[in-house]
Amino acid sequence: MKKIKGYSITLTVNNENYDLTAEPNRTLLEVLRDDLHLTGTKESCGEGACGSCTVLVDDQPVRSCLTLAVAVEGRHITTIEGLSQGGALHPVQDAFVAHHAIQCGFCSPGMILTAYALLKENPSPTEEEIRRAISGNVCRCTGYAKIVEAIKSLADQGRQER
């Protein structure tokens, strides 16, 4: 009856399969950064409050610092590195650049992925819905206004999808 999961796992990250060994106590954040060297995903508070470590699991934003790597085997994980295609920025990234929605950039990966997920679920969110969606992502530089403007520009144009 004792069913203990082995430590060999296969993670699907940005449409690539990675076979790796991970102890059960390793978070998805640690595996992404330390094993797969996808350092676009940032660690800040480490306890789910700030949103810096946000990645997408099956297109839903999750806190990778609170997610066990072994628990997301078989799911589709998207990090900020997986958003751009062939060196071209994704429209959400383009909008952040165009609206100067980035200053130090530490919150940007999580913020952009959260915005991407919002627009995928709701292509035309209101400003209130945008502010609510990113309310779990802390930015200490921009004051949020530029970020909201960037997302709003895509909502207005309805062109978040390639």
Binding site: K3, P24, N25, E30
Partner: peptide, 21 residues
């Protein structure tokens, strides 16, 4: 912050989960 070590259980159905408990 690192997690302490533990063994991971992933039951496939509720009966198995109850048995593990």
């Amino acid at each position: 912050m690192r997690l302490p070590p533990f063994q991971y259980l992933e039951p496939e159905n509720i009966t198995e989960a109850l048995s593990m408990m």
